[in-house]
Design a protein around this nucleic acid. Sequence first.
DNA 1: AATGAATGAGGGTTCATTCAT
DNA 2: AATGAATGAACCCTCATTCAT
Lengths: 229, 229, 229, 229
Amino acid sequence: MSDPSSLPPAPAPADPGPTSSAHQRRKAERPQELLDAALELFVEKGFAATRAEEVAKRAGVSKGTLYLYFQSKEELLKAVIREQLSSRIIAGAQVAAQHRGSCAELLRSVFPTWWADVVRSSSSGVFKLVVGEVRNFPDIAEFYQQEVVEPGLRLVSSIVSSGMERGEFRALPVDMVAHSILLPLVMLCIHKHSLGVCCPAESLMDPEAFIRLHIDLILQGLAQPGDGA
Amino acid sequence: MSDPSSLPPAPAPADPGPTSSAHQRRKAERPQELLDAALELFVEKGFAATRAEEVAKRAGVSKGTLYLYFQSKEELLKAVIREQLSSRIIAGAQVAAQHRGSCAELLRSVFPTWWADVVRSSSSGVFKLVVGEVRNFPDIAEFYQQEVVEPGLRLVSSIVSSGMERGEFRALPVDMVAHSILLPLVMLCIHKHSLGVCCPAESLMDPEAFIRLHIDLILQGLAQPGDGA
Amino acid sequence: MSDPSSLPPAPAPADPGPTSSAHQRRKAERPQELLDAALELFVEKGFAATRAEEVAKRAGVSKGTLYLYFQSKEELLKAVIREQLSSRIIAGAQVAAQHRGSCAELLRSVFPTWWADVVRSSSSGVFKLVVGEVRNFPDIAEFYQQEVVEPGLRLVSSIVSSGMERGEFRALPVDMVAHSILLPLVMLCIHKHSLGVCCPAESLMDPEAFIRLHIDLILQGLAQPGDGA
Amino acid sequence: MSDPSSLPPAPAPADPGPTSSAHQRRKAERPQELLDAALELFVEKGFAATRAEEVAKRAGVSKGTLYLYFQSKEELLKAVIREQLSSRIIAGAQVAAQHRGSCAELLRSVFPTWWADVVRSSSSGVFKLVVGEVRNFPDIAEFYQQEVVEPGLRLVSSIVSSGMERGEFRALPVDMVAHSILLPLVMLCIHKHSLGVCCPAESLMDPEAFIRLHIDLILQGLAQPGDGA
DNA sequence: AATGAATGAGGGTTCATTCAT
DNA sequence: AATGAATGAACCCTCATTCAT
C-alpha cells in the first residue's frame, strides 16, 4: 500500500545515517501504527467512545506520544479517514480505464474481486466510521464526498453509461443504477463492522459470492429485454 | 348555540376530568417527547457525543426530568431503538401476507411505497443509530437482529422464495437475493442521516423513484431468461 | 439558646371538633411519625447519606408532606435531636434529687436501670447522631452541650461529689470520675448503633449487666481504701 | 512508635537521586498526602458530606489527581481506615507481651501513655469515622472488627485475665471488664473529634490524666477486697 | 392537607491535553 | 523522542426543594 499522502508531521523516512537504527525505524513507523490502532478502535467503538489513551496503548506507545504525531484526537480521526482511500480508488479507476471489452465483462470480472478485497481489508471499516461521524465533523463530509464518493460513483457511472451508449444496457438513470450497484457493497462493509460482528449473516459471510450474485442480478436487470444475456 | 344534542362527539382535546389534568397529560406525553428528542439527537450526533441535557432541552424539560422517565442515558438509547420497529414491520408483514398475485407484483406495488415511507419517516434514523452503537451495547445487537433484521429478511425471503417456487424467478440463493434487495434500502436510510445531510445525492433525493428503479432492476434480474418480463 | 421543646409548626393537638376524625388524628401525628422515621434513618445512615424522600416514605407520606412540617432537612435533623432529651433527663434528675440514702446505693440502684432503658430505647441513637453531625451543625453542639451533656454530668458529678463530702468516696477530681462513669455508657449506646449492628459484642448484649459491672468497678474504685465496701 | 501521621505536605528536601526526581518523589508521596487530607476531612465533616475535590485541594492537588491514586471516594475511605491501625496495635501488643511484672503495673505504666498518644495523634479520628460509617460500608465493619477491635480487646482481656489467674484481680467477666476499661478511652477519642471541638470538656483536656484516673479507678475496682492496693 | 412532577445546583468521575522530566 | 503525572473542563446522575394540582 502506498501514498500515505498527507500524513501529519511526516517524519521523513529518515536518512539511514549513523544514528539511524531500529530506533529510527520505529520512529518512522509510529504514525502508521497509530493510524492503524485508531482505525480499529474508532470503527469498533466509535470516535467519541474511544479514549486517546486506548489508541496509544494499542499502538504500543504512551498517551503523550500520540500527541507528538497528531495535534488532537480529532486530527487523528481525519488522518485515519484520509489515509484510507485514494490509492485503492485510483488503482481501481486505472484498471477500469485500461479495460477493453464489454461493460458487463468489466463489472463481472475485476469489480467483484476488487470490492471483495475492500470488504475483507481493514479499509472496509472507514465506511462505518465516516457514516457515524460526518455530521459531527463537516469537513470530513466534504473531503469524503470529493475524494471517495464522487470518484467511486463516477467510475461506476461511466461504466454503466458507456454500456448504455454501446447498447449493452437499457437506458436508465445512470446515477441511480450506480447507486443500485454500489449501495449494497458499502452496506456490506458497514454490516461487517457492526451487526455482523455479533450476528453474522450466513449469506454475507462470503463477500465475493454475494457481490457476484448482486452484480449478476443487476446486469441481467440492465440487459436489453430480449437479450439472451 | 343550539341543540347541543346534535353536536358531534365533542372535539375536546382534553377533558380536564379528575384523573387527567394538564399536569397528568404532560406526564403521559413526556416519555414519547423524550424518545423523539433522543432519536433525533442520537442519530444526528451519535450516542456518546449527545449529552443527556441536550436531549432534555430538546424535549423541553430539564435534565433531572429525563431521569424520572429513564434510568440512564443507556436505557434511553435502548428504549429509543425498541420503540422504532415492530409496528411498522408487523404492518408490512400483514400486507404481504394478505397479498394475492405474483411476487413481482407484490414487490413492485406495496414494497416501494412502504419503504419510501420508512425512509422519509424519522424511523429511518434508527438504522444509522443501531449500526453505530451495536458493538458498544451487545444486547441491542441481539434484540435488533431478532426483532428487525430477521423478520425483515424472512418477509422478503419468503416472497422471493415463493416466486422461485412458482417459476416466476430464477433459482438463486434466496438469502443473498433478499440482501441484494434490502441492503441498498437500508443504506439509503443511513445515507439520508449521514453524508446525505451535507452532500445530498441527486439520485437519492426521491427515495421512491430510486427504490422503484432498484426493484425493477432486481426483478428483471430475477426473471427467467427468455421471459418477456 | 432556647426553647428546645418547640416542635416545628406544632399542629396543636387539635380540637376534637366536628371536623376532627381519624384524618385529624393522622394530621396531628404526622410530625412525630416523621421524627421517628428521621431518627431511625439518620442514625442508620448518617444525615448526609439519608434522602429526604426515604424519611417521608418510612413515615408513610410523600416527599412534599415532609416539607409541610419541616422547613428543610436540616431543620428536621435539629428537631429530631431536640426531641430526644430533656424529658428523660429531667425525670432522672428528679429521681436522683429525691433519693435518700448513700450515694453508692443511688448509683447502684436506679442508675443502671435508667441507663439500660436509655440504651434499649431508640433514644440511644441520638448519641451516634450527634457525635457524627455536631461539627457540621454548630448550633447543635451548643444546644446539646447545654441540654444534655451538662445536666447529665452535673447530675452524676453531684452524686459523686456528695459521696466524697460524706466520706463515702475517695477525694478525686469529680468531673473526671463522672466521665469515667458516663463515657462507657454513652459509648455503649453508640456501639449499639454502629459496629454493634454488624459485629455484636457478646459482653455488651445485656446492657444492664454491663452497666452494673461497670458501676460496681467504679464504686469499689471510689471506695476509701481499707473499706470493706 | 511515634506519631506517623499529621505530617503536612512535607516538601521533603530529600536527595534528588537519579531515579528519584522531584517529580518521582511527589508521586511517591501523593497517596499519603491524600490519605492524610482525607482522614482530616472525613473525620471533620463525615464521609458523605466531604467532597472529593476538597480532599484533593487540601492535599494540594487537583480533583483528577485523586482518581489517579484511588479508584473512588469509597476506596479512599477504606484506604484511610486501613491505614490507621495495625502498626500501632501491633506495637502495643509487643510491649504488653514483653512485659514482666504485675498486671496492675502493666496497666498503670505503658497503657496510659500509649493510649494518650493515640488520643493526641490524628489516628484518634478513625474511631469517629468508623463509628459513623460502618453501617453504610459493611466490609469496613468486618475489617475493623478483626483488625482493631478484636486485637485490642484480646490484648486487654489477656492482661485482665492473667491478673485474675494470679489472684491480683477479683474474678469477674473478663470481657466486660475489658470493655469497662476500653470504652471510655475510645469515647475520649470520639469526643475529641466531635463535641470536644466545640465544647471542650475541662476534665478531658489532658487525656493522660484522665486515663490514669480511669485506670486507677478500675484497678482499685478490680482489686481483691481487703487488699491494700 | 397532600401529592409527586419538575427543577437545577451540586458532586463523583472521566478523559483530552499539557508539560516537566 | 518518549513518558506519564497532573490538570480541569465536561458530563452523568442525584437529590433537596418547590409548586401546580
